[in-house]
Simulated scan of single mutants.
Amino acid sequence: MNEPRSASLLQTLRAVAWSFFGVRRRADHEEDVRRLNPALVIGVGIAAALVFVIVLLLLVRWVVASGVAT
């Protein structure tokens, strides 16, 4: 019988953060596959990508406004 997926939001955030770097041990990946809720992983991944893009846009605006880029 399938075991219920019991990973917390913090564990999901950590797994998504590691996936952004592309560094993950095989044993940790297998544990994530067993425990993480796929819908939560997708939601956290989309939110993390949006935050990343917003931070990059703010950084670019700050550099351009400071005059360093010219």
Rank of each mutant, 00 (worst) to 15 (best):
G67T: 01
T70K: 15
A15C: 04
A49S: 10
F21E: 12
V68E: 10
T12G: 14
F21N: 04
A27F: 01
M1H: 14
R34D: 14
V23G: 00
F52A: 14
H29K: 08
V63I: 13
A47K: 02
I46S: 12
S6L: 15
W62A: 15
D28F: 01
A27L: 08
L9K: 05
A27V: 04
S6E: 13
V68A: 15
V64M: 09
I46M: 12
E3K: 11
A15K: 01
L56M: 14
R61F: 15
R24V: 08
I54N: 02
G67D: 11
V60T: 07
M1C: 13
G67L: 10
V16H: 02
A7P: 02
A27N: 02
Q11S: 05
V55H: 07
L40S: 09
V55F: 03
L59H: 07
R5A: 05
V53C: 04
G67R: 02
V23M: 14
M1D: 09
F52L: 14
V41F: 03
V64E: 04
L10P: 00
G67I: 03
Q11K: 05
R35T: 12
L9D: 02
L36I: 15
A48W: 10
R26S: 09
A49R: 00
A49I: 05
D28L: 03
F20D: 05
L56K: 12
A49C: 01
L40I: 14
A39V: 06
L9A: 13
G22L: 03
L36C: 12
R34A: 15
A47F: 12
N2Q: 12
H29R: 12
A17P: 03
A65L: 10
L50Y: 05
V60P: 06
A15N: 04
V16Y: 06
R14I: 05
D28K: 00
V23I: 13
P38S: 08
Q11M: 13
V53T: 10
M1G: 13
E30W: 08
P38W: 05
